[in-house]
Each structure stands twice: as C-alpha cells, then as structure tokens.
C-alpha cells in the first residue's frame, strides 16, 4: 500500500490549497476568467452573512380588521394558476373584487426576481392587492434564504408598499427549502403554506402529471386560502365563499416559459 501515500499527499495538498484560497482576501484571474473559490472558508468559519427580511422587520406589526372595500386584485404566478384562477374568480366576483390573472408558465422566483415583469403588470393593471402563487417549479431544488436573497429582494422591491400575500406551492413532494425561503422573506402572515393541505391529502387530487391540482382540488385549495386571507393574513380582505362554481375565465395574460441557458 506504499504507493497510496503518494495519492494521500495529493489529496492533502489539494485540500490545503483549496482551503487557503477560500480564505484569501483576493480573487485570482486568468485573463477575464475568475478562479472560483470553494465554500471551505464558510464551512470552517460559519456563514456570518446577515439577511434582513420582511418577517424580521415586522415584529411591531398589529393585525388589522377586515377591509371590506372592493379590491383590484392582481393574481400573478406559475402554471398552478391554470386551475386556481377559476375558484379565485368566483370568490372575487362574489365579493365584488376585480381580478387580473397573469400566468407565467414554468416561472420560478429567480425569473420573477431577475426581471421587472411583475412591476410591469403592477403598472399596467394598477392593483391595490396582489396575490402571488410561485414556488412549485422550485420544489426539487435546494434553496436557502442566502441563495435566493437577490431574487427575493427584487420581487419585494417590485411590490413596493402594495399589500400582498404569497400562496406557497401545493407540494406533491417534500420541498428542499423553497417554502422556508418564501416564509423567511415575507413572514408568516403573508405566506400561505399550501403544502399543509396538499401533501398526503387524498382529497387534493391532481392531473395525470401528478403535479397540477384538478379543478376540484383547486376549489378545495381556494376554500382554505380565502379564510386565511380574511382572518389570519396581514392584509385581510373580504373573501366570503360563493354558493356557486361557474368555471368562468377571468381576464388572463399568459407568458411563455423563459428561454435560459
């Protein structure tokens, strides 16, 4: 086994060099290419980056009473809206709200947080209440508040001071952090944890793709969202349950998936 020691020294020296470089206060370049660092320094010293979030800033907030005025609502999100828009439209019409729906197929927080698309539709429809439904396309990806900070800050920046709530993804599998990321930034009272009703719930049926809820499931989903918005969210508005299901189409804008490399 003597020759193995030569290999062991290779491992030790490489490990030492990668670690030392990760601690270096400078970054090396070859031409225009930056020589990337590993996360070894972060591993040894710990992650000391402090990330502010709305949740952290909102400790002095007090719950408001239900706002019964008619709202101009923008419902913005991914393909989960394909089904949710029908019950949402029924609820809005019954309670006197106006609804605009923007579906961005395959949308991720990184797309919305890397563009001004949300701001564009806010400018276009001038809503006074925004409901976001995003995250389903990021369930399998490992995410932390740190890794998503850039995107989440830009989404919140686009929303500015508008009252909004974020409907979390209706998980069909355990997520790898997206729910925590959203909750971290927007706080419990702006975040509806859809996974609590979608995961392992035989009534929450799905289409053949095993991901998108059926229309029945979408109504079940909305029946949970509405009381949460009305009684438990930070911006409670009137959303009484309508006695009918019309399946009528709300005004709709469809955005095709982004091409990205």
């Amino acid at each position: 086994m003597k020759p193995v020691w030569g290999f062991i020294w290779m491992l030790i020296i490489t490990l030492f060099l990668l670690t030392a470089y990760s601690f270096a206060p400078f970054t090396l370049h070859i031409g225009k290419i930056e020589i990337k660092k590993t996360h070894f320094a972060q591993f040894i010293m710990g992650d000391t980056t402090k990330i502010p979030s709305l949740a952290a800033q909102d400790i002095h907030w007090q719950r408001q009473s239900i706002d019964t005025t008619h709202k101009n609502i923008l419902l913005f999100g991914d393909s989960m809206l394909e089904q949710l828009r029908y019950p949402m439209y029924d609820y809005c019409r019954y309670n006197g709200h106006k609804l605009h729906v923007v579906i961005w197929y395959a949308a991720k927080t990184s797309w919305v947080g890397n563009s001004d698309t949300l701001a564009y539709f806010i400018k276009k429809f001038k809503p006074n209440y925004v409901i976001i439904v995003l995250g389903a396309n990021e369930l399998p990806f490992k995410m932390t508040p740190l890794s998503q900070s850039k995107y989440m800050f830009h989404i919140l920046k686009q929303l500015d001071t508008l009252p909004f709530v974020w409907i979390g993804p209706p998980n069909w599998r355990k997520d790898r952090g997206i729910n925590n990321v959203i909750r971290y930034y927007v706080g419990n009272d702006r975040f509806f944890p859809s996974y609590k009703i979608s995961l392992n719930n035989p009534k929450f049926t799905r289409f053949q793709d095993q991901a998108h809820p059926t229309y029945n499931a979408a109504y079940l989903w909305m029946d949970s969202i509405a009381p949460w918005i009305m009684y438990r969210s930070r911006y409670p508005i009137k959303l009484e349950k309508p006695p009918y299901r019309t399946h009528k189409n709300p005004p709709l804008v469809v955005l095709q998936p982004l091409k990205e490399e």
Binding site: W9, M10, T14, L18, I35, K36, K37, T38, F141, K142
Partner: peptide
C-alpha cells in the same frame, strides 16, 4: 506533475460547479 494535473482538474470541477 501528477499533483499539478490533479489540482487543475479539481479546480475545473469547482469552476463549473453551479449553485447546487
């Protein structure tokens, strides 16, 4: 020389590694 090649390959892997 073998060590240098090994270091270059490991750094290349780091270089191309995505966020996850």
């Amino acid at each position: 020389v073998k060590l240098l090649i090994f270091i270059v390959v490991v750094q290349l892997a780091v270089q191309f590694m995505g966020q996850k």
